[in-house]
Simulated assay, not measured.
Amino acid sequence: PAAFSSLFQGATRWHGFIALSIVGLLYGDEGVTWMAIVMAVIIPPLNIINVSMLAHFGSGNSNLQEVLLKLVRNPFIIACAVGAFLNLAHIGLPGPLYDVLDILGGGALGLGLLTVGAGLNIHLVLKNRVLVGFGALIRLLGMPGLMFLGCWLFGIGCTARTVAVIAGAVPTAASSFILARQMGGDATLMANLITVQVLLAVVTLPLMMWLSGQGW
């Protein structure tokens, strides 16, 4: 169950900061706007799904009441709810507070990556290479393929389609490791999955972007 929870996170969660940086450089404000829409639609429900899954599989098959309690107390869910409220209420954040939180967020990302690196176990990567390879390919090839299929079914093309494919093709979020550690998932497998995905994405991400631009 713990290994499944890490595979599930590795396949479904994605590194929004990397995706946002790529589309900003390639497509400017239009790309950032499309990616903001993708993030707003996907990230909140995806966090709820993953936290629920970890509460059940990662912590010893919790009952429904325990799962719901962990959901409402989880910092990822709380952050999404607070951010959505501030946005919808048009309250926003004061400039100085925003700058402070922005600096803290940047530091947290770096610390998260360092934590992932510390949890990496090369021996286990080699020992579980089939499992790690499968988890990486599901994320880096399977998810962008699903994104493209969805865009094709709904008639979405051009920049919007490429942005959606990029969201599916980037490696999983570094915070997946922290969530696995906190909620009883297989944190070592999660660290190995993240690292292998980042390395493989150097090849697969440009390939997926090119195929999307060609319309496959």
Rank of each mutant, 00 (worst) to 15 (best):
L137K: 01
L25Q: 10
I43V: 12
K70C: 03
V72D: 00
A11G: 07
V203A: 15
A81V: 15
E66I: 15
V165L: 01
F57K: 10
L20M: 15
L86V: 05
P1A: 11
F177H: 13
G10V: 00
A174F: 06
G105H: 05
S52M: 07
L88I: 15
R181C: 15
A19Y: 04
A160L: 03
P96R: 10
L101Q: 10
L114S: 14
V130M: 09
L205I: 07
L146G: 11
L179W: 09
S6P: 10
V203K: 13
G31Q: 06
A40W: 03
F134E: 07
A55H: 04
R139H: 03
A55F: 02
A108N: 12
V202K: 11
E66Y: 04
G168D: 03
G10P: 03
M53G: 01
A89D: 10
I138D: 02
A169Y: 01
G105T: 07
H15F: 01
G150P: 14
L68Q: 08
N50R: 01
L211F: 14
P96W: 12
Y98P: 07
P1G: 10
S52E: 01
R73Y: 03
G155P: 08
I78N: 09
N128Y: 08
I103K: 15
T172Q: 00
V38K: 00
L71H: 08
G110V: 05
L124Q: 14
N192C: 02
W14N: 00
A187C: 10
V196L: 06
L126Q: 05
C158V: 07
A167Y: 05
L64D: 03
T188S: 05
L71R: 10
Q65L: 13
P75H: 11
I77F: 11
L68Y: 07
Q197F: 00
L146I: 14
L54H: 07
N47A: 04
V32Y: 00
A164D: 04
A201S: 15
G60T: 08
Q214N: 11
G157N: 13
V165E: 01
N61P: 09
L64E: 04
V203L: 15
V82C: 09
A84M: 14
P75I: 12
G24T: 02
L20W: 03
A81M: 14
L54C: 07
A191N: 07
C151L: 04
G117I: 10
L111Y: 12
V196Y: 04
G24S: 12
A2I: 08
S6A: 14
G112P: 08
A36V: 02
L120A: 04
R181T: 14
F134W: 11
V32I: 13
A19N: 06
I43D: 01
F57S: 08
L207W: 11
G145C: 09
V67M: 13
L207H: 10
P96M: 13
A79Q: 08
V82L: 14
A84H: 03
F57N: 08
A164K: 03
R129P: 00
V41T: 05
G135F: 00
Q197A: 00
H15L: 01
N74L: 12
H123T: 12
R139V: 01
C151Q: 04
L97C: 12
A118F: 14
V163F: 01
G24Y: 01
